[in-house]
């Protein structure tokens, strides 16, 4: 199976969250009129890790979105059969028509990335901008990334590009389809 993916370059990610807001805008996740902090869906989140003690410190930032799991636990959890892994792209998709809003997938997701729309009672998440990539465009987060830290493509090809750039795969974080890389020191 071909697996589309995003490669996150930790040497470049600055944790600016531009991708989160651009993603929300593109997918209409926010009611701009009534929005309040802490009440908005988001397909991405930024994580970071500070290590060391003053003045010898290091910090990494990266984004976490649906990892497009190889064997998605959300598919197994969904009694309604609303979640599938697309054979052409490897993208894990939720069919809103079939979704019953049980929330079972949200509980089973090991990455905590599935969102729940209380109004429409359905689960939703990052599908690598399926609407865009089928037209040959990159996912929105990749296009708008302030630091050009994200790259879109086939997982296999992205891995080759990382290798060519002297970046090593962060295996601990890259267990599924999304790749996390950093300069090999």
């Amino acid at each position: 199976m071909k697996q589309l993916s995003i490669m996150v370059d930790l040497d470049r990610c600055i944790g600016c969250k531009t991708c989160i807001v651009a993603c929300r805008n593109h997918h209409g996740l926010v009611n701009h009129e009534t929005a309040m902090p802490e009440g908005m869906s988001h397909y991405l989140r930024v994580e970071s890790e500070l290590t060391g003690t003053f003045p010898r410190l290091a910090e990494d930032y990266w984004v976490v979105m649906c990892q497009q799991c190889k064997k998605p636990p959300c598919i197994k959890a969904c009694a309604a059969g609303a979640i599938t892994k697309d054979a052409q792209t490897g993208i894990v998709r939720i069919d809103r028509e079939k979704c019953t809003g049980s929330g079972a997938c949200i509980e089973k997701c090991p990455y905590g990335v599935i969102q729940f729309n209380a109004e429409g009672r359905f689960a939703h998440k990052c599908e690598l901008c399926h609407d865009r990539v089928v037209h040959g465009q990159e996912p929105v987060c990749v296009e708008v990334c302030l630091a050009d830290a994200l790259r879109f493509g086939e997982r296999e090809i992205l891995q080759m590009q990382a290798e060519a750039a002297g970046k090593k795969l962060l295996k601990k974080r890259s267990t599924q389809s999304i790749l996390y890389v950093k300069r090999a020191d």
Binding site: V21, R24, V30, A35, P37, E38, M40, H42, R45, F54
Partner: peptide, 18 residues
């Protein structure tokens, strides 16, 4: 709201101390 959301912005301003 998006800029003061803890996920997409910042919503805290404590005093940083070593």
């Amino acid at each position: 709201a998006q800029l003061r959301d803890p996920v997409s912005g910042i919503d805290a301003n404590p005093v940083l101390l070593n």
